[in-house]
Each structure stands twice: as C-alpha cells, then as structure tokens.
Design a protein around this nucleic acid. Sequence first.
DNA 1: ATGAAAGCGCTAACAA
DNA 2: TTGTTAGCGCTTTCAT
Lengths: 338, 338
Amino acid sequence: MDNPRKSPTMTDVARKAGVSPMTVSRAFKPGSLVNDATRARILAAAEELGYVLDSTASSLRSQKTDFVAVTIPSINNANFADTVGALNEGLKHRGLQILLGYTNYDMQEEERLIEQLLRRKPQAVVVTGGKHTPRCRRLLTNANVPVIETWDLPEAALNHVIGFSNAQAVQSMVDHFVAKGLTRIAFIGGDADRDTRGLDRRLGFVAAMQRHGLDATRLIAAGPPPISMREGADAMVHLLDTAPDTEAVICVSDLSAFGALSACQRRGIPVPGQISIAGFGNYEVGAICVPSITTIDPGPKEIGARAASLICKVLDNSTTEAICEHIQPRLLLRESSI
Amino acid sequence: MDNPRKSPTMTDVARKAGVSPMTVSRAFKPGSLVNDATRARILAAAEELGYVLDSTASSLRSQKTDFVAVTIPSINNANFADTVGALNEGLKHRGLQILLGYTNYDMQEEERLIEQLLRRKPQAVVVTGGKHTPRCRRLLTNANVPVIETWDLPEAALNHVIGFSNAQAVQSMVDHFVAKGLTRIAFIGGDADRDTRGLDRRLGFVAAMQRHGLDATRLIAAGPPPISMREGADAMVHLLDTAPDTEAVICVSDLSAFGALSACQRRGIPVPGQISIAGFGNYEVGAICVPSITTIDPGPKEIGARAASLICKVLDNSTTEAICEHIQPRLLLRESSI
DNA sequence: ATGAAAGCGCTAACAA
DNA sequence: TTGTTAGCGCTTTCAT
C-alpha cells in the first residue's frame, strides 16, 4: 500500500494507463479528442487509483475557477433561498459552482465577505441590494468580472442590475388600501439603518401616504433585521395598544405579517373585519394560512433565473455592455385585506 | 494605463514596494513576522494597485484550500438553513469557506455533487443523512478528509456523526399521544423512496403504533419531497375525507403540520378539540401560529455548531478517531395537541 | 490523436 | 526580518 495521505495525481494515472499526463487531462475534459479506447483505459486507471481531478490546479493554470460568488443578507430567508436556488439551477449545467456568503444585513460585513470571495477569483458576482460601502464598490469594480446587483434598483449601478423598486411596490399596496377607503394605515418594519430594502419599503409607504394626504406616522420599528414572525407579532401587539383605531397594516414581509395576524387572532381581533393586513414577498405561509395574506410577489425565482441567464450570456459573448432588467412585482390580493 | 484585463500579482506589488514577493506573501498572512513599516508600505502598494490575493494559487502551493464542502437536501428549508448558518458561524473565524450543494433529496444527485465538490479539495465534508450510494461512500472514504454525517444515525458511519434517530423521535411523539388516550392516529409524510429521514420518521410511527397494538395504516403519502405546507394541507383534506374519525395526526415536519392545521381551519374542524396535530422540526411558524403546533426540536443550530467545533478540533489535532455525537431531540408540547 | 515543455501565482523550505 | 529557489498539479502552446 502507498501512503494514504497523498492523493494520486494525473501523472500517476498517466503512468498506470501508459499515456502522457496531457492525454489524461484531455480524457477528463468532456469535449476533447481522445481515442475512445484510450479514454476508457485512462478512466479505469483513474477509478482504480481513486483519482480525483484537482480543480485548484486546473483553475490556476487555465485561469478559470468556474466559481460564481453570491451574497445574500441571510441564509434563513425563503425569498433569498429561492433566488439562490434558481441561480444554482441555471448555473450548474455549465459547471459553475456558487460560492455563497451571508452579509447579515450589514454593509461592513458585505465588504469583508466580498473581499474574501474575490480572492477565490469568481467569474461573476451576484449581490443582493444596490447599496455598498465605497471600498466594496471599488473592490467589485476592480475585479474585472461581471457583477449583478439584485432585489433593488441602485442609484448608481456597479454593472448589471436585475431588480425592482421596493418603494414603488409598497406604494402600490398603499394605493390599493386607500382605494378601498382605508385611511388609518400603519407600517411594521425593521430599524431603518440596516436592511436597505426594508428601509426603501418604509420610504415608499411614507411617500404614498403623504401623496394621499394621510397620516404617515404609524410606523412600528420592530428591531434590527431579520424581522420575522415573532417580531411581527410583538410589533402588532404594540400597535394595537398604542393605535387601536388602525384599519390596515402593511408589513415589511409576509413573515412579520403572519406574526401580526397571529397576534390579532390571539386578541380576538377579526382580520380583515377590523384590521386589514398585507405583507411582502409571497412566502408560502401567507398563501396557506387562514385568512391568507395579501402580498406583493417580487419573483425571487425569476430574479435568480434571469441572473443565471445573464451570467451565461456574458461569459459567452464577453459582452461589456451593462444590462438593467426590471422585474415587475405583482400585487396578490388575498383574504387578509378588504 | 495597463491592460485592465490582467490583474496585478504579488510580483507587481513587490516591485512597487521594493521588496521580494515572499515578503509580500508574509505581509498578507496575519500571524507572520514582517516589519511593521514594511508591511504598511506593502499594503499601501497593494491597495493602490488594486491587488487581491489569489487564493487559487495559494491553495495549490500550500495544499490548503480552506474549503468545507456541505450538502443539504434543499436550500429552501429553515432547518437545514439553520444548520448551515451555525456551521458557517463556527467556521468563518478560522477563514474556512463553505462550499454548499443541494441534493434535492436524491442520492444520485448527492453522488454527482460530492464528486464535483471533492475536486475542489475541501478540508472537511459535512453531509446531511446517513444513506449514500456505494460510489459516493467510496469517494468520501478515499478523499482522506474528515467527513461528518448529520441529521441521522447511520447504520455504518463513514467517519464522524452528529445526529439523532428520526424514528425514535417520532416514537416518543406517538407515546405521548397514546398516553393522552388517543388511539386513532395518522401520519402524513412524503413518498417513501426519497427522503430517508422522512422515511425513518414514518417507520418510527409504524413501529410505535404496532408496539401499542394500534392500527398503523393511517399513512398519507403526500408526494415526493420536499413536503411543505401545500402538501400538508392537501394530505389533511384527503385524510378528513377518508378517515374522518382520526383523533391525531403526526406530520413529517411543522410545515406540513401547519398546512394540515390550515386545512382543518378551513373546514371548521377544531384543533385540538376534534383532532390533535403534531409536527417535526420546531420551525418558527409552529411556535407563532394559533393554535401553536406541538413538535420535536432536533436542534438544527446545535448540529451545525457542533459540526463546526468538530471540524476545527480535527483540523488542529488531526485526530483520526471517529466521533459519534448524539443530539437529544426535545418534545415541545403546544396548543395543537391535547 | 498524442506528447514535451513551460508556467499559472503563490508559499514551503532553506539560507542569510 | 528578508530573500532565493523550487515546485504544488494542472493545462496552454506548440510539435509530431
């Protein structure tokens, strides 16, 4: 037996198969010209030796890592998970492997993460959101790879964009409620200084309310993101205590909306009889619960799928032109709102 | 201007800072001995050039990739997301980067994924579940890196294990219901041939029912995994139609349990008044909804945190001894069961 | 269809 | 504290 700590290399396989290392390399590359019999002999030798191709060496020599770096605020969020899932689905056929990082809704953390991920020399970068630290922007620009900002419409795009306006989406929800005759409308969201998409939604709420000449001060800050069900429930309790005449609540996400709904149910407050509730994101819970929750579907999977297509296109053509694709969020009216 | 397509290398930085490439290398390695002034000069030169360390080359030379390969059935599952999140948290301080892959509850896909991930030469591998194709087992064994199987207690462990018995956990739930005097108990889960943890839970249900001398044939197959809220709701409708005298339902996860609960609410069937419901996994929805859902908490974060600790320990000591850590799932009694 | 030579960018090992 | 040499395992390039 040889030393089990040392893995076999192409040279070992080549010797065993009676060919040169170069031929082994070709045998492992799908589209290349190797005699069928030779290839079979090589693959058999490799299997017998337990040989596994070393992508590290391959990447260094060919200057192609087949990595795509992706950052999302949190791993435990079904919306971002859907985007990453669709992205992965669209990339894996090309042999592209996602390198995933979590920013924890923090631009400083994003900067650290991007710096670390860029060292792996990804062939494309997909980030969530359109706001970044100056150094992060510099790092991404210098990297000379396609960058896609998602889930937002940045003021100054780094490169490509696949997103939508969070503010506008919420404005359409406010318009819907106002058209139904509701005027005392509240917003439940996270603290303003972290989650920029959540902040944009709040700003959209305030802008729309002011446009309608309505009171835009029923703003419940539910703490630092992520704002999930528990935070939504607590915020609703607070709202019911401080502004019991509220007619409708728009929540930063379906998760907090479901929490808010549950808080109403525990207090015996009919939804939508006394209060209408709306969320954001079209999470599964909002479609299944009773009453189902009115929401906005920003198409998380579509964002991921389009990002994958764009990456593939750019890597083929090496197109330099920056693309900006707008996703149109859909308003889904359900039982939780009149 | 130089060609923007070509990134600067250590040699470029070294020339600019007036030192040798080796000193630049040391300057970028946190714990190493470089004159403070020299290091400052080097980092300034690097920043000015927009230099980013190339981990690919570094990994090849040092034979340390700082990758940890992780496979989970689905990205869109809060339990596995919690495990990966805790794993990431425990690894990032050491500079270890997770390489994540999704098996889609398919052992063939897992084999393909593991083969691809092993080419990246990870320094440890964490897989979900204890059942794998023979070739997958061979690949993992040959890789000569620590392997951790999680979320299960494998019959024949590959190496390390951090898990629990899915069957036993569900048996304890059955015992609880039986002790309460319930006898007509059903199980809602996915088709038997894919999700092995789900299958184990079903087997645990059947074993416990038979041990109590009860009818174990109220098994609703909700289709191929992932079984989520929609599938749970549909399965509950089917159950209510075919076995309306059922007193309790145990679901393969809290998501399907919540779907089942919603189906009952739509039919006006009181829970737990007429039917008790239990889930698995301690997802947030089950804690927040009304009534809250009785469940089993298998400690997803604890699994991830322990896996991270184990990896760090093994990479330090290069301990060869295989560890098997049992997690004790906790029964959480809530409002959905009497 | 196959092989030989060279080198991707970095760091281990040794030297000063 | 810093420098020199060599080479990690593979693939590009050129040759046959």
